[in-house]
Design a protein around this nucleic acid. Structure first.
Length: 562
RNA sequence: GGUCCCAUCGUCUAGCGGUUAGGACAUCGGCCUCUCACGCCGGUAACCCGGGUUCGAUUCCCGGUGGGAUCGCCA
């Protein structure tokens, strides 16, 4: 890695060094009693019951948890004519930066939407009023745009299913909460948070290992009071919920694991699980793809769909992306915010490529353009094992994207690198010059920041002189070589790489000077560094005037006029 | 502790009953070479353990162990 860094000057333009860890995967499986999983017309499991509402899934799946292999023919998520247009969503909470775990989730949803011709919805889950801010929302939108993950419906673009911010949909939650209460699937609870917290603490003191469960105080309360109340789910205690995850296969959870969770706060604002269900329902979401950390919420949400008498969407959970030490990815474990990678010069396409390969694979292929990804993505190729984020691998992918013209054209490269060059206090006045320089540095930069460093001498006049390089190569006895070379180059008819090389070779042959005693000093004179693209290419790029000027200056530095 | 999930090189992964267990990153050699790179060649390196099923398990089943997720009027 260190090798690709600009050796001459600033060193750390590379992505951090690091280590990573393991992960594994396995085949996936799909379909669920969802109206949207097209495949086999799976029975809409006995939903619809209101009372203690809950689908009585095959209470306790016998054994066979690991579903067989997905049949090529009956893929629940297969694209087939006649099925409703897929509607996917990414529902970030504006409580912080957009981080790479979230981007991975957004990406998979986006890929599927784009691949199937479906719709990608951006929904802002801002019901945590303590932490949500408009600033964070703006940052999330900005970063998604930078990544190119465009949405068809969202808070800024609007759409037929809006509004797209949960705080603007409060009446809807109230309506659905009332439905649940009317159906007996939920009830008002007047217990205060303080009372419950106290009880929770008491239990913790008594029996730390036991899980606190709402005691059911208000479950059968007959007389409403004037006190503030929350809406609680009347959770069923027997039976089980089963669904077929597109990635994990069949998942069965006993209802005994459920609790009378709070659905709506006393101030009328819904909690995650409820708002999420109401929105996915009312926004017509057909497939919910999200991180595995949400897998625990799915059975409860399924219970809610059932209680509401509605068909749930299909679900796909993605394995977790952990930090290199196996811990949950967070600010404390390396960079997690998208903005950070962008600022470090990782091209968006490279970040997307890396993230797509995380939990998804396509044979032995490692490098994909976004177009490739859209064409090749498939839930079936998603793995199940959690993985660890590997900065080095991201760097390698970024390098490939920057190196290959088919992934980043010369013109595109110029666009991408310009801000980084300007950040160094330089001006890219001559775009054409920059574009001609790109081929010379492609195989040397892993990030755009590094690329800008490699380009420094192209735009800085005179070039910044590296002390060590100057001391080592611009020796007094080399000055004559530089002057002689300059003199010969001055005579050249066409100042091209081939001609320059011809003249240089001839000079070496005639004088018998070791190439190292001429080329290295010349390189330092012309670029200010001991490491650079090929000397002849560099000179041709700079042109005769600047080359001669720099050779003379180098000679002067080597043998100061006395 | 309850519930859910996972388990192939250091890392990301391929594998879908029979392979010398493949690729990529990383790492170690070498070649190429005007420097640095790129590239090329080669090396080290993995099926968590135990039972089944089977003529044959990395692959299927069960158990164990290990790891992760989650148990809030957060999302």
């Amino acid at each position: 890695m260190s090798a690709r860094a600009a050796s001459g000057a600033s060193a750390s333009n590379e992505l951090a060094p690091s280590t990573t860890k393991s992960g594994r995967r396995r085949r996936a499986r799909i379909d669920f009693p969802s109206a949207y999983d097209a495949g086999s017309a799976r029975a809409k499991s006995g939903l619809a019951s209101a009372r203690a509402g809950a689908s009585q899934a095959p209470a306790r799946a016998p054994s066979a948890r690991r579903t067989p292999r997905p049949s090529t023919t009956g893929r629940a998520h297969a694209i087939r004519p006649g099925m409703p247009q897929p509607r996917l969503r990414f529902a970030p909470s504006p409580t912080g930066m957009l981080h790479i775990g979230g981007v991975r989730t957004a990406l998979f949803n986006w890929l599927w939407a784009r691949k199937t011709g479906g719709t990608f919805v951006l929904r802002i889950e801002d019901t945590d009023r303590e932490r949500s801010t408009p600033e964070n929302e703006a940052i999330i939108l900005r970063d998604l745009r930078w990544l190119g993950l465009d949405w068809d419906e969202g808070p800024d673009t609007g759409g037929a299913f809006g509004p797209y911010r949960q705080m603007e949909r409060l009446p809807l939650y109230r309506e659905y909460a009332d439905k649940l209460i009317a159906a007996g699937a939920a009830y008002r609870c007047y217990c205060t948070k303080e009372e419950l917290d106290a009880a929770r603490e008491a239990l913790k003191k008594d029996n730390p290992k036991q899980q606190f469960r709402y005691p059911g105080t208000c479950r059968d309360r007959k007389s409403p009071t004037d006190r503030p109340s929350v809406v609680r789910l009347r959770a069923p205690s027997d039976g089980a919920v089963a669904y077929r995850d597109l990635v994990f296969g069949e998942v069965t959870t006993p209802n005994s694991a459920q609790q009378d969770v709070v659905l709506v706060r006393s101030d009328g604002i819904p909690l995650y699980n409820f708002g999420c269900v109401v929105d996915d329902l009312t926004m017509g979401i057909t497939l919910v793809a999200r991180g595995r950390d949400h897998m625990i919420n799915t059975p409860l949400q399924l219970l809610l769909y059932t209680a509401l008498g509605r068909t749930p969407p299909a679900f796909a959970h993605l394995p977790m992306m952990l930090a290199q030490d196996g811990q949950k990815l967070s600010k404390r474990h390396g960079a997690v915010s998208v903005a950070e990678y962008r600022d470090r010069g990782v091209p968006a396409t490279a970040l997307l490529n890396y993230l797509a390969r995380f939990g998804w694979s396509f044979g032995d292929e490692e490098v994909f353009s976004v177009t490739d990804l859209v064409a090749k993505f498939d839930w079936e190729r998603c793995g199940r094992g959690d993985g660890k984020f590997d900065l080095k691998k991201l760097g390698a992918i970024a390098f490939e994207h920057l190196k290959r013209p088919e992934l980043t054209s010369d013109a595109r490269y110029v666009e991408l690198v310009t801000p980084f060059v300007e950040a160094r206090g330089l001006e890219v006045r001559d775009r054409d010059l920059c574009q001609r320089a790109v081929p010379l540095i492609r195989q040397r930069a892993e990030t755009l920041a590094s690329a800008a460093d490699w380009l420094d001498w192209v735009f800085r006049d005179p070039p910044a002189m590296d002390d060590k390089a100057q001391k080592k190569f611009l020796l007094p006895e080399r000055a004559p070589h530089l002057r002689a070379l300059a003199a010969r180059l001055a005579e050249l008819e066409s100042f091209t790489t081939a001609e320059i090389e011809r003249v240089a070779k001839a000079y070496l042959e005639e004088t018998g000077a070791p190439i190292g005693e001429v080329a290295q000093p010349a390189r330092v004179a012309v670029t200010g560094r001991a490491a650079s693209p090929g000397l002849y290419e560099v000179m041709a790029l700079l042109g005769r005037e600047r080359t001669l000027e720099r050779l003379e200056r180098g000679a002067a530095l080597a043998a100061p006029a006395t």
